[in-house]
Design a binder for these strands. Structure first.
Lengths: 341, 341
DNA sequence: TTTAGCACTCAAATCAATAGAGTGCTAAGC
DNA sequence: GCTTAGCACTCTATTGATTTGAGTGCTAAA
């Protein structure tokens, strides 16, 4: 692939910019008037023809202006975007909001989703950080009524799961506390595998408690769909490219598919990925772009967060926002999980 | 208001039915062909004119068929719907799904939202049951790292709240456990007022714990927006009457407004309310109807659940579904909160 | 009271003509 | 060898006129 001349780059960038702004195909004359390239529309036309030849632009029809292809967007994102940092003022506002919030994952996630949606003017999603190797911190058994017991498990790092158990035979609260105390004495700090081995011979109610504990540990190690925060979905649905027939649901579902998230989650924390038009692998995303990043503490607890919009999305803002919010979230996770790893 | 003749009732019912089915204004001839009224289209026209005179129908324009007014829908819902029970087969499926689920409020709510959306083919929302007078069941303080303490509070009935506290001075886990034990010995079974009085003189960290406990109790007594489950929103957004300009967000927000929910929640558990076209009080709902009911244990913990769709919604199914799901949820809440009140 | 008949209305579909934005190409200019 | 002015050509979008058809309201007869 031969290198584009500086002027071609400039024109490609302008076309992408203008198209993102106006949502209308951009013609040579309009581009000339809107920029200070110092060349005539005819020259621009020639260059555009070359860019089309090379696959960066297309034509909806003969007498329409140019529209970027996915390849064009890709080039734009990789080579032509200069400054993806958010302006300092905006950064401050965002950071301030996070410091105002309570020290709770769910609050942060919700806030992150809200900030991403607002700043990038796209739909956003934030998945909860998944514990890569949950370790028991505390277990509590509370009798709520004769045949019902509430089991609460705290993992190292502070995430909490609960489950209601129903008993055949009622068990008194002191007995329950004793069982819980045994786990707390013997199993704190252990991961699922260690617990499975150590307590392999437990039977009856205690065995059941252990199995549910293991189950909750598995659960904490997976991204459940109930722990995905979204924002801005209905707004982005109003964008002209999402005509009512294209079902947004299908689209959001892709983002929850294991294949998709796993693929993205294989990237290291700290990098921002841009997936344009589904990259041919996700049909439902053919008209969309996704800007996504992992956040959290690598090897311990990581989640994903990103925005979803039409391919015609403001990439600069989106990338800046995703990067900045991911950084903040990583800091927060580290702060929260601090010395426990 | 003079009574409608049986034939007028029949015609009104048919118009509403057909309009709900087809979304197109229904004309006299079409109605004649689609029914077995045994009268000519001219007669139907005359009757329709009368119904329009009385305010049950309108005309989009001179040469279009008739469309029900809100008053027409109201009459339909109150007088003309005969059987709002779901078919037994459907009931069984639903009941089965609930019994398959785990004993957890959040699971039930999610399931309820899903069932409502599917059965009524509208958007659904389910709010968490609000404890009307939360009483402490258990309090736990867990040190997660030197300066961070996780506080977990269980209320009678089994709902759980948590909060992370940051300390000026580190406090050891045994000390924390001791403080928690004091609350558990002295405050279990108390409501917020009792706790406030009993522990009015607590200071320092223990005072802080008490204040957060009270805060969490207040919190448990309010419907927070994070505890609202929704489903089917994007589907219903595709309905022809919701053109892209009308913002669904604004619409959903109304349902979360205190005014709206309070109004609805003032009705007793067990009744299903139908709000057609916002009843003039909620402008954003002018094109919508809401079918909503309270569920739970009256005087102890109640929530609301319902569906939201265009005024042209299948009222029969919606009312049947809301009533049935509300009944199931009430049963479940009673089962869960059982003997504790 | 019902109904057949008819004139009338109005939105939606169809069609033709036009305007305009934009392209591609060619030939002249720097 | 680029660049640019000029021009023919293409295709969409808009506009306006016309037609179509569903549906109404009214009247007069059954």
């Amino acid at each position: 692939m031969t290198e584009l001349t500086p002027r071609q780059q400039r024109i490609l960038g302008l076309v992408v910019q203008m198209y993102i702004d106006t949502a209308a195909p951009v013609g040579s004359k309009a581009l000339m008037e809107a920029s200070d390239l110092g060349v005539s529309s005819a020259t621009i036309r020639n260059e555009m023809a070359v860019l089309e030849e090379l696959g960066y632009l297309t034509h909806p029809h003969t007498s329409a202006g140019r529209v970027p292809t996915d390849k064009g967007y890709r080039y734009f994102v990789e080579r032509l975007i200069d400054n993806v940092e958010l302006p300092p003022a905006e950064k401050n506002t965002i950071r301030h909001q996070f410091h105002q919030a309570r020290m709770e994952m769910s609050q942060w996630m919700q806030l992150a989703a809200a900030v991403l949606a607002r700043v990038s003017r796209s739909a956003s999603l934030v998945t909860a950080p998944r514990l890569e190797r949950p370790r028991l911190r505390h277990l509590e058994l509370i009798s709520t009524q004769s045949h019902l017991v509430l089991m609460i498990v705290v993992f190292q790092g502070g995430s909490v799961r609960q489950r209601m158990l129903s008993l055949q035979e009622p068990i008194s609260q002191p007995e329950l506390s004793q069982i819980a105390a045994r786990f707390n004495e013997q199993a704190v700090g252990m991961d699922a595998e260690a617990i499975r081995q150590r307590f392999a011979d437990l039977a009856g109610f205690e065995g059941e408690v252990m199995h549910i504990l293991l189950d909750l540990m598995t659960d904490a190690g997976q991204t459940s769909s109930s722990e995905v925060y979204r924002d801005g979905l209905t707004e982005v649905l109003q964008e002209p490219e999402f005509n009512r027939s294209s079902d947004m649901n299908a689209l959001v579902n892709v983002l929850e598919q294991p294949g998709f998230l796993n693929d993205v989650l294989s990237a290291p924390v700290g990098t921002v990925q841009v997936i344009i038009g589904g990259e041919g692998r996700w049909r439902e995303l053919s008209a969309c772009s996704v800007v996504i990043a992992r956040y959290g503490a690598e090897g311990f607890a990581t989640g994903a967060l990103g925005v979803l919009g039409p391919t015609r999305m403001p990439y600069g803002r989106a990338i800046g926002a995703v990067r900045y919010v991911a950084d903040i979230m990583s800091d927060l996770v580290n702060e929260l999980y601090g010395e426990s790893f």
